[in-house]
Design a binder for these strands. Structure first.
Lengths: 240, 240
DNA sequence: TCCCCAAACCTGTATGATATGTTTGCGTTG
DNA sequence: CAACGCAAACATATCATACAGGTTTGGGGA
């Protein structure tokens, strides 16, 4: 029985599975694999690391859960593009186990999205500006379909994050979307009248225009105002 | 052959493993499990969901990789406290696959940590203020041991994030630490002279004092200055 | 009552079998 | 000779089973 895994790893007390995870991520790093590139097959890794295919499979599944790699029946595992799936689960878990509350999420969003608004105003392409504007307009147009309004709202914020040209912002903003889908209707309904709801949509439109106009200061300020409004609405509705 | 998993799930096209992950997270949510609470055994879940233990194990491993649950030989799986382990891996993966660069990380950190500095100044306990100060002082005291300086630097920032009383900030700041450990020495060495390095440490001390004094404005400004310096040093060193 | 140990339970890992999806290359056909 | 199609080789998905440790628990003895 030769030592499984071998190759000077941080194996120590850890399980074979976590050692395998380490070996696979190291393989990605050392071979400078890019998104889309294929990893060795389970059988190959199993032989190479001297562990059963079971261990390799559990390692692969773990990496797939974090969206570092992608699995598909019959095909070899491939390296993934950055994705907020794992972080979404993390945040949802925090919320469900009451380690995170909604107010904290909105504080983070406000902090980050003031910055994405600034950066988007500076860096957006024309296509992005158009897309952001179209979401803001759609929110007005579909005023009576609150679910549609919500989806455009979410897409609006995510598109701004994308236009900031910093994938980490995009990642974080995206990670909150699943949770927001639960709380958004609360904020929408809690507004005292349709006037406030129209105001809310108007802010989006102004923001989109500031970004399209390349005015970072205004964009940032409008984003701040937007979140101040939203947080007030949520607090008024008694969301913890 | 009865349909495996059952129970109106979003199972459809997904694999049994991802269905099992869904079932387990739903179990945590519906039973309002808190960190430390035990999950059903693999055998139990295997029977309940009509899938093999293999599938349950792969689901457990996936959740463990994301640090939503904790596994240990002989013991039942338990729900985890929030932890930045998964997000660390995510960020490292992004960096290694060149989907994220160091400058982007520093922009995110600057954005977030200006806020944690503000919040820490408002919310820190006396014990936290003392801890933050002690790390800043240790950076001065151990000036010649750059590794020690780095560790105190990292701990300093993480402690501020903790004192912000928003676990999401703490999560994000923590997630960057592993990557920072690689780039930090570059910034340290790239400073033209020890005078700049002393300056760098001095900023930390001033910042710690602003937080201890409960001065959010100053704290935030010092944090901004700190990052502007750091980013300049990294750029000077040619870090992409 | 307290302590210790064995049985029951649980997870970690390995093996092999089967079903099914994907890729590849060869041979046939037009 | 090119294009098509199909079978073999390869890969993953899932299952069943086995066994080696680690953990918990309850009962029996001091």
């Amino acid at each position: 029985m030769t030592a499984a895994i071998e190759r000077g790893k941080p194996m120590d007390g850890a399980s074979l599975v976590s050692a395998a995870i380490g070996a696979i991520t190291r393989h990605i790093r050392e071979n400078e694999l890019a998104p889309g590139d294929k990893l060795p097959s389970e059988a190959t890794l199993s032989k190479e690391l001297n562990v059963s295919r079971t261990v390799i499979r559990e390692a692969f599944q773990s990496l797939a859960a974090m969206r570092l790699i992608e699995l598909a029946a019959g095909k070899r595992a491939t390296v993934c593009h950055l994705d907020h799936g794992a972080m979404s689960l993390l945040i949802e878990h925090g919320v469900h186990t009451e380690q995170i509350n909604v107010q904290q999420i909105y504080d983070v969003r406000r902090t980050i999205e003031m910055r994405t608004a600034t950066l988007a105003a500076l860096r957006r392409t024309d296509a992005e500006a158009k897309l952001i504007l179209s979401h803001a307009k759609a929110m007005k147009a579909e005023f009576n379909n609150s679910e549609a309004v919500m989806e455009h709202d979410l897409a609006f914020h995510l598109e701004i994050a994308k236009a900031s040209r910093n994938p980490i912002f995009w990642l974080i903003v995206g990670a909150f979307q699943d949770v927001i889908r639960h709380t958004w209707p609360v904020g929408w309904k809690s507004r005292p009248s349709d006037a406030e709801r129209h105001d809310h949509n108007k802010t989006h439109l102004d923001l989109a225009e500031a970004i399209a106009a390349g005015d970072p200061q205004t964009a940032s300020q409008l984003m701040a105002k937007h979140f101040d409004d939203s947080i007030k609405a949520l607090l008024a509705a008694g969301v913890s």
